[in-house]
Structures are given as C-alpha cells and as structure tokens.
Write a protein that binds this DNA or RNA. Structure first.
Length: 809
RNA sequence: GCCCAGGUGGCGAAACUGGCAGACGUACACGCUUCAGGUGCGUGCGACCGCAAGGUCAUGCGGGUUCAACUCCCGCCCUGGGCACCA
C-alpha cells in the first residue's frame, strides 16, 4: 500500500471530529482531568513554521497524557487585539476587526490541518466583547482594591505624529512612522500595582516545575535588593538628597552624588545652579534618548556637574560635589545614587572620565593599593576612621545605625503600565465627571464596547483614536447623571493574556468569567507550553492576576501554571529570524500538501531538541517522510495469517531480541516524551523500525499493536489508519500507553570497556554483574591488554561495574 | 550595558550521575534495482598517517581538577532570546 497521506489525513480528521474524540468533557468517570495548554497565538495572517513547531511538540505531549489515561483538555484560541491590526487599518484602510477575524478564519483552517487534539468548542477570541467584558470586570475589582491607579509617566512621544510610541516604534530615537526625533513626555496613564505582589511572586517561584532559567529571569526582573536609604544634606539648605544603596559599607568612599536628569530636585535647585545652561541642555538632550538607548550606550558616560550645589556625607561630614548623568534612571530607587568609584564599575569609569577622586575603603589585606579597576569583593575597611580593619559586611550595619538611616527593600521592576493610546484594545471602563471625578463604570454596564470608527489615526492631543468618536466619548456620569467623558485609553494586550487560561474552562459563561465548579474541575493548568520570549512579562503578569483573583476568593490556587516548558525558535534557512520583511518565512501549507501533517510533525519533533529550536532545513523533512513510508510499507506487508495469530511466546533468539528492542523503545519513547525530548524519541522509533525490517516475519499482532501505539503521538493519522487496517475496530486514541516489561529489557551480556592509562584499548563481552576480581582476571589475560601493560605492575585499577575497567600504570 | 541560553563531522543533531565522542537522520560517493526518478535496497563517510592491523589528533579559545572531561572549576571570544507600548 503506497502511503497516501492526503487521503489518510482527511479521513481520520473527519472521523475524530464526528466521534468528538477530542472534545473535553468536564468530567469522565475514573479519569483524572489534565489541563494541557499551549500559549494562544496572535492572528497575524498565516500560521508559520514556528507555530507548527510549537504546537506539534505540545500535541505529542498532550496525546501521550491522553493515552496515559487522563481526561485531557487541550484548548486553543486567539490573542486578537494588538498593534498590527491597527497598522493594517491605517495603511490599507481595512477595519481592524475585519482584518483580525479574517486572519482567524485562515489560521483556524491551517491549525485544523495539523490534526491536533484541540477542543474546538472552547476557542477564545479576545477581541470579542463577550471576552473582554471580563478584562474590564477584573480591572474594576483591582480598582476597588486600590491596585489600579493613575499616574504621570514619561513616554516616548512623537511631536509630529502627536502620539505615544512603543520602544519598538522609537528605535534609535526616531519615530518609525515619520522619522522625527522622539521626545520623552509626561502622560497620565493607568497602572496596575504588580509591585504589591513582588515578594509573593518571588517566593512562590520555588513551588513551580518551571525551567530554572525562566525562574531566574523572573527573579532578576523583580530584582529585589535589600539596602538602605541614606540622606545627604545639601550645604546651606534645608534640603536633602536621598539615595538608595545596597553598599552602605562604602559610604566613606563616596566622592560625589549623581542625579538622574528627571530628578524632581533639579527644578527646585535651579536657582542655585551656576552652570544653568549646560545643565538645562543636558536635561533637554536626555529627553531625546529612549530608556533603552540610555541603558545600551553606557560605555561612553556623559554627565554634567551641578556647580554651586554641594552635599555633606552623613558619615564623615565631607563636602562632596553633585553631578547629573543619564546612566542614573529616574524610575529606579530614588533617582539618585551615591558614587563610590573605588567599588563600583560604573562609578569608576565615570570618575576616570571626569577626573573625580577615587577613595578605596575596602581592601583585601587592610592596605590601600592603586586600583586599576573597581574592587568589588568583600574585605576589611580602610580609610573609614574607627571602622578600619572591620570586615565590610559588619561595617555596613554599623554605618546604617550610626547615621540613623532606614533599611529598605527595593525592587527593580515597576508597576505595570496598561494604558494604550490605541484603538484596537479593550476600553478601560472609567468615566471622568467634572463633579464626581473619576468614576468606574458600574459592573451592570459592562462590557464597554469598542465602537466601530473610520479613522484610526491618533487624535492629535495624544489620546487614542476613540476620542474622536463623540458617541463613545460622551456619556452620563453614573453617579450624578451629568454629561461626562469616558476614558479613551485601551488596555495593553498583555491584560487579555493574563487570564485567558481561566476562560477556557467555561468559555461561554455570561454571568461570571468562569463557573467555580469548572474552575475546580480543571485548574490550575498542569502543563503550559510556549516560547521563552514570554519568560518574564506574560508569565509574571498571569501569575499576578491569579494571585489577585485568589485573594478575592475566586480561585483556590495561587499559581496558574504548575509546569512550564519552552519551545525553541525556528530560524530561517538563511540563518536569520523568520520575518515577512526578510522574506524567509516558510509556508507550512505547501509542505503539508506535499508530505502531510504527520511528516511535518515527525520532522519538527526530530530536527532538534524541543527547547532548542534550530535552522529550518527545507530538505530535512524527506527523512521523516521516508520513515513514515517505511512504516506504512512494513504494516502493509505484514503477514496477519494464522501463524502470527496463534503464536505465543518466542520461538527464537531473534524473536526475543526483537521483543527486547520493542520494550526498550516503549520505555525510551515514554520517558523522552515526558522530558520533551521528542527528537530522541523519534530516533529510537527509527531504530525500532530498522531492527524490525531486518526481522520482518517476526512481528506478531501483539507486537504490531504496541508498535503503532507508541507512534500515535507523533504520526496520529498514519497510526490510526494502520491500526484499523490490521484489524482493530476502535480508535487507537482510546488505547492506553503500553507498559514495558522490566525484566525483558535487560541485556544479559554487557560490553565492558577496557582502558589503559585512561585510553580505550579493548572491549570484551561479559555477563551482567561480574565482580571486579573476576573482571580483572579476564581482562589482564587478554593479549591486547598485555601488549599495553607489558610486564609492569599496574599502579591502580579503576573498576566501574558493567561499564569499564581502567588500568593505570 | 544588564539578565538568560547556546557553541560537537559537509549539514540537523546524540552522549545516563564525569566513563566508547558523533547514535538517529540528512547530504555526498560507489554498487544493485528501475523505462524513468526528490524511488527502493546495500556499502562507505570527523581529520591526519598507514596496504592493513592499528596509531595520533579532535566537542568555540586558553588554563585547571581527575585514573578518566562535550560534561566540573577559572578566564576569554562568538551567536541567539529578553529588557517593560510587538505579542
């Protein structure tokens, strides 16, 4: 039988659909629920090979769980709000909704062609009011608790387009629409107080089965540091400059302070600054740098001294100068740092460049030495008066105590800015009334529906295009009834994806975001699969939402995703990241047409370790296609006559060997799938096929069944076809994962490696469990070993049972 | 700059807990099969020396620990991901 993948795949996809094999029922007798989730996708237009790679591996795992006996739910959906739809609207005049929904239609078709076990009855589309109503509802709950608030924040601003820009749109300080210089402008924005959850987000990481690298990125992102706030009085003034430092021990080594250009004291001090013009120029200049530019180009440090301003070191009362530089960020700590060039790299460079004094206060040996670079290690105090010779970490607390500073915990991460001056997002449900101030939209009035508009360009005042819709903007105040205005900002799309996993358990509910019983049935998510690019933001935001809803009593768990795995990225054949602009995007449809979904799945699983990803090799799929062809061929020519049916037990060594290989493969494939090592699972299936082909006649019905069952997760269509072809009536997906026989897989004889002086010189077959004495005797008697050992006595013999012996001369 | 990964044959890769480096697959070469081939089957395939047996070298670079290092430690180089308004 030739391998007709097109016919086979269409046939079984239809069959699975008809039998509703993958529609997840809320509960099934005798089965535990298993919620398996793959990050939903952005409807950009076409599914690309990266989606396939991601979803194929995830589906292998989900199918395996199903065969392990779980009631698996594996939903999918679309993260449908976002900038590209709006850009398409501006450039091509297509309404974002139309663009998005039509992309969803195309991509749904493409996804269906994969044959994954998605439950299509639970699809979520975040741009529909029935979904984003609950965004707004959660926002209101946060507002009630004081976790949603408004604040003035610096944003990238294009003075010509009159709009706020994303960092991506402001690369190199130029607006990517019109090329004008981007400025930093203060804008009032909505934020969510994620920092209130900092410690819990940090602590609960310990409870999760997540990649260590992801946990560590989250830890670093949160950036908890324990330190102290120290006050430096300004000379001849009542004012003080407060700095945050984790290195209070280095206080006597402070030779200047540095303020961020946006530090509020600068305005107040302006009158006293002698070099006003250079200071103002510097501040003006820094407004044209994006935050990323400021962080990236720190090699060439810039700065200007605030002449006329001096501060007093609270510890040794020394008078020191104050500088301003953009390597200090306004948003972190207090926006001011104490500079200790002797013990901080950045301060060291800055001091060298501007010829500021460098005073060493910690040293390895109690002596001062000429420093070539900053000394960052611990040591004992020097140049610090009565503290000299104390270990620096003890001195730290003494200093904090003696100047009466308060200890403080600082976090690097900031509250989450969710305001977007864009059209294509969920409206923030707030109303501004002249009389009553900021009034939340009453819950009964939700959703605040995004109006259909015609002009998607910003309104020229920096507001979202929604401000142009009078019908949307003007509204009666829910409290006093007077005419008021709606908030025109929409929400960051990360809000949509911060709770979508909750909605899948009850996607059509109109009364609550999800029924509490269904939440109990399914949640939290057992396995979550998605890209490492989400290691920080999405995953942190989702954890924050879960913790908030837990606190509010809606959930009985504190973490949304118990296990997490990342897929790697597929790079284009030219070694570049795939993107439309580079023109190196691979169209999966053509490959599916030619080789079939199963070949695609097998190849994508085989090409690299799942978490690693790799370069797309257009010819690589041939290997997978050949493999499936050979499987197809093997089973078509299988002799299902009397001989095989009546055979029980094994009638030859060959037969026993084949069975051992089969059982080893069951073990290996199962373990590899659990570890997301799909590449080596496929490789062991290929070995099994090679070995079986050598012993064609020996595959009986029982062995053939097992063979097909362990291929199911990778090539489900072909496995189903062959399964029913060899006489099975029900779907192979209803079968359970075969068990391997522990005793059967142990080889009786072991190949022992013989090394002389650590170099491999010989090998010998020996029975399992042979003792050291027995082995030595056997090995030392071998001609080849004698050649190397000669007449000398071995100095030492290293013996690792069942593995190797190393004779050291 | 900061945080996180990774670097192994022509190519994709594998290697358990420190124990045969290169499984499996591709490409290539040769042979058989075929009217034909992006067919099927077989053999070979890290580099160097050698007719061979075998030997030496080899996992980004430089050092170290060890009987033994792709694996552990120290220093460096390169590539990729993230850095808060792309999702």
């Amino acid at each position: 039988m030739p391998y007709n993948h097109k016919k086979i795949e269409a046939k079984w996809q239809k069959y699975w659909k008809q039998k509703k094999l993958f529609t997840a029922k809320d509960s099934v007798n005798g089965k535990k629920n298993y919620y398996h989730l793959t990050m939903f996708l952005y409807p950009s237009g076409n599914a690309h090979i990266g989606h396939w790679y991601n979803f194929a591996g995830a589906d292998v795992f989900a199918r395996f769980k199903m065969m392990e006996g779980y009631n698996v739910m594996s939903p999918t959906g679309f993260d449908a709000f976002g900038l590209p739809a709006e850009n398409a609207a501006i450039q091509h005049g297509v309404p974002p909704e139309k663009w998005t929904l039509s992309n969803i239609k195309t991509m749904t078709k493409q996804l269906e062609s994969m044959g994954n076990i998605y439950d299509w009855s639970r699809v979520i589309i975040t741009c529909l009011p029935e979904y984003y109503k609950w965004n707004q509802w959660i926002f209101l709950q946060m507002y009630k608790k004081g976790l949603a608030y408004r604040k003035k924040v610096a944003a990238n601003w294009c003075p010509s387009c009159k709009t706020v820009l994303a960092n991506e749109q402001a690369e190199g300080g130029k607006c990517n629409r019109c090329g004008s210089s981007v400025e930093q402008k203060e804008v009032t924005q909505w934020l969510l107080k994620i920092t209130a959850y900092a410690d819990r987000l940090l602590e609960d990481l310990e409870t999760l089965d997540w990649p260590e690298r992801t946990k560590s990125m989250q830890k670093n992102w949160i950036g908890r540091s324990e330190g102290a706030e120290l006050e430096f009085p300004i000379e001849d003034s009542e004012l003080k400059i407060t700095v945050f430092t984790t290195r209070a021990d280095t206080l006597s080594g402070v030779t200047y302070l540095v303020l961020a250009p946006e530090h509020p004291l600068l305005k107040i001090l302006d009158a006293r600054i002698r070099n006003k013009n250079s200071v103002r120029d510097y501040i003006e200049g820094s407004k044209h740098k994006t935050e990323l530019d400021r962080m990236t180009n720190v090699k060439e440090k810039t700065g200007v001294e605030l002449q006329g301003i001096k501060v007093i070191n609270p510890f040794n009362k020394k008078i020191i100068p104050v500088w301003m530089s953009d390597y200090v960020l306004g948003g972190y700590g207090t926006g001011a740092v104490m500079a200790v060039p002797a013990h901080d790299d950045r301060d060291f460079e800055f001091a060298k460049k501007f010829e500021l004094p460098i005073i060493q206060v910690i040293s390895e040996n109690g002596k001062t030495n000429k420093l070539e670079t900053a000394y960052l290690e611990d040591g004992v105090m020097v140049n610090s008066g009565e503290l000299d010779n104390l270990p620096n970490n003890i001195a730290k607390d003494r200093i904090i105590e003696s100047i009466g500073a308060k200890k403080k915990v600082n976090y690097k991460f900031r509250d989450w800015l969710i305001s977007r001056q864009r059209y294509w997002g969920a409206p923030i449900p707030m109303i501004y009334c002249k009389e009553c101030g900021t009034v939340p939209v009453p819950e009964r009035d939700l959703p605040v529906v995004l109006p259909k508009i015609k002009d998607y360009l910003p309104d020229g005042l920096g507001r979202s295009p929604l401000a142009k819709s009078e019908k949307f903007l003007k509204v009666r105040c829910p409290e006093c009834g007077a005419m008021a205005e709606r908030e025109t900002d929409t929400m960051d799309t990360f809000v949509d994806s911060s709770w979508y996993y909750l909605r899948y358990v009850d996607p059509k509910n109109k009364k609550v975001f999800a029924d509490s019983n269904k939440i109990k049935d399914w949640l939290p998510v057992k396995m979550y699969v998605g890209g490492p690019e989400h290691a920080v933001m999405h995953l942190l935001y989702a954890r924050f939402f879960t913790k908030f809803l837990y606190d509010e009593g809606y959930l009985d768990f504190k973490e949304p995703f118990l296990s997490l795995r990342h897929q790697g990225m597929i790079i284009g054949p030219d070694g570049q990241k795939m993107s439309k602009s580079r023109g190196n995007v691979i169209d999966p449809d053509a490959l599916v047409e030619k080789f079939g979904a199963d070949s695609m799945r097998v190849y994508l699983c085989f090409m690299a370790e799942y978490s690693q990803g790799g370069t797309w090799d257009p010819t690589g799929i041939l290997g997978a296609y050949r493999f499936l062809n050979r499987v197809c061929d093997l089973f078509s020519k299988l002799d299902l006559g009397k001989k095989i049916k009546t055979e029980n037990g094994f009638n030859s060594k060959e037969h026993k060997d084949l069975n051992r290989i089969l059982h080893k493969t069951i073990k290996k494939v199962g373990e590899d799938i659990v570890d997301f090592k799909f590449n080596t699972a496929i490789s062991s299936l290929m070995i099994l096929l090679n070995e079986t082909e050598k012993r064609r006649g020996l595959l009986n019905k029982n062995m053939a069944d097992i063979f097909l069952k362990i291929i199911v997760p990778f090539a489900p269509h072909l496995a189903e076809e062959l399964w029913q072809k060899i006489g099975n009536k029900k779907s192979v997906h209803l079968e359970s994962w075969p068990e391997f026989n522990k005793h059967l897989i142990e080889d009786e004889e072991i190949e022992l490696l013989i090394q002389v002086n650590g170099k491999l010189r010989d090998k010998v077959m020996i029975h399992r469990g042979a003792s050291q004495g027995e082995t030595e005797k056997l090995v030392l008697a071998r001609e080849r070993v004698k050649e190397f050992v000669g007449t000398g006595k071995p100095k030492k013999i290293i013996f690792v049972q069942d593995r190797l012996i190393n004779i050291v001369l």
